[in-house]
Write a protein that binds this DNA or RNA. Structure first.
Lengths: 67, 67
DNA sequence: TGTGAATATAAATTCAAA
DNA sequence: TTTGAATTTATATTCACA
């Protein structure tokens, strides 16, 4: 299925363009773009995409593509 | 106080030398090296050290120094 | 296969205290 | 300031099912 791949690409785009700190935040953003998913699915996407969660200079954590 | 800085250096050494997946694991390793701390403290250390948790190729997550 | 609901596990934070 | 105990919050996993 391509819904999954599309969604994962959207995730990459989202985190590249704005700081996203939690999976719940990501769920909301995805919803704005027409993707309806739950936290369990996001968690799996993040794992597959090998995203990392890093604490920024300001102390806020942000998801990003590790490399 | 230097206990904190010493402990944080030990943390950096530990994660550099073996894969550590969780804060509880880190607590155990630190204990082996004479440091007695709780998860709350480790969480703060990790934040200060700006460590990242990344999912490896094998699917296991590991803490590492982001850069 | 991919997903959601429920649950388990991990991690961050609050609040008191040394 | 730094910490631990308790708690909240976030994330990963299990289990059933389309």
């Amino acid at each position: 299925m391509n819904a999954r791949k599309d969604r994962q690409n959207q995730i990459l785009t989202l985190i590249a363009n704005e700081p996203i700190a939690t999976q719940d935040e990501l769920i909301l953003k995805l919803r704005e773009h027409g993707y309806e998913v739950t936290q369990a699915t996001i968690s799996r996407d993040i794992k597959e995409l090998k995203l990392i969660k890093q604490v920024g200079a300001d102390g806020k954590s942000v998801y990003s593509a590790g490399n």
